[in-house]
Design a protein around this nucleic acid. Structure first.
Length: 233
DNA sequence: CGAGTTTGACCCGCGC
DNA sequence: GCGCGGGTCAAACTCG
């Protein structure tokens, strides 16, 4: 299980970023952490990619090696920015998987939320593309500290699942990022967290650094090494 | 008392 | 048209 459509997504040991500028131009991202051992390559698709990502399905994950899950990650892809700071102490040898996809593009009736509640099916309607990133991780607790402050606004029982789904919204004024948290119905020891939207502010816990690769314009955080092919500029 | 959580009601799209 | 399911709202409640 390691496919999000046909998009490449690989990594090694560290799950870290390789991303385009967040917040308009990107300056620092991430939070505390050690684990700066590089070798990370998570080309979460390019923002300018032309191929259409498949409709999101939580069954699509990319397994992240559990052997060295870093306590802090930061993901930014295209227009989205998601920072995840995971407190290892609160997790049980976390295994983590993720899926990155773009919502707001539909095939086979991908529902996206409307502003007035409920859902609407995107069918040719032009609407902002909202990227979602889903993580599936093994954890005893459902709420992990990702560096942002969330406010719960809903809870729903999900059909075919004994576990309720919780809805959170970034509590920072003006930020409309949402996340959904639910336990995997097949294995309750796993928690599925889905982020939706773009933070328009930095994480309150963000003390990390980022550097920009002038060749690609991408930003690298959390100690990710700039690929040799991009250096020298 | 303000911020956050809980939870039932409501809205909306979809399938039958 | 109706019921179902997912997502959101908002009043009541809890907590620091």
């Amino acid at each position: 299980m390691a496919a999000v459509g046909s998009r490449p997504l690989h990594y090694s040991r560290n799950f870290m970023a390789h991303y385009n500028p967040p917040y308009g131009q990107g300056s620092g991202s991430g939070s505390d952490s050690g684990s700066a051992s590089a070798n990370c390559s998570v080309p979460l698709g390019d923002a300018d990619q032309s191929d259409q990502p498949p409709p999101f399905d939580l069954s699509e994950y990319i397994m992240i090696e559990p052997t060295n899950f870093i306590p802090s990650t930061s993901l930014v892809h295209g227009t989205s920015a998601v920072n995840v700071s995971l407190v290892q102490g609160s997790m049980n040898a976390p295994q983590m998987e993720s899926a990155v996809f773009q919502a707001g593009q539909s095939s086979a009736g991908t529902n996206v939320p409307t502003s007035s509640g409920g859902t609407s099916t995107v069918a040719g309607l032009e609407r902002p593309r909202t990227e979602r990133i889903a993580f599936r991780m093994q954890s005893e607790v459902e709420i992990v500290d990702d560096g942002f402050k969330w406010r719960k606004y809903g809870k729903k029982a999900v059909k075919n699942s004994p576990n309720p789904r919780n809805y959170y919204r970034c509590s920072t004024e003006g930020c409309s990022v949402k996340k959904r948290v639910e336990r995997d119905k097949d294995d309750p020891s796993y928690v599925i967290t889905t982020y939706e939207g773009v933070h328009n502010h930095v994480s309150p816990s963000m003390v990390y650094y980022a550097s920009q690769d002038t060749a690609s314009g991408r930003y690298y955080v959390a100690g990710v090494h700039i690929p040799p092919s991009s250096q020298g500029n």
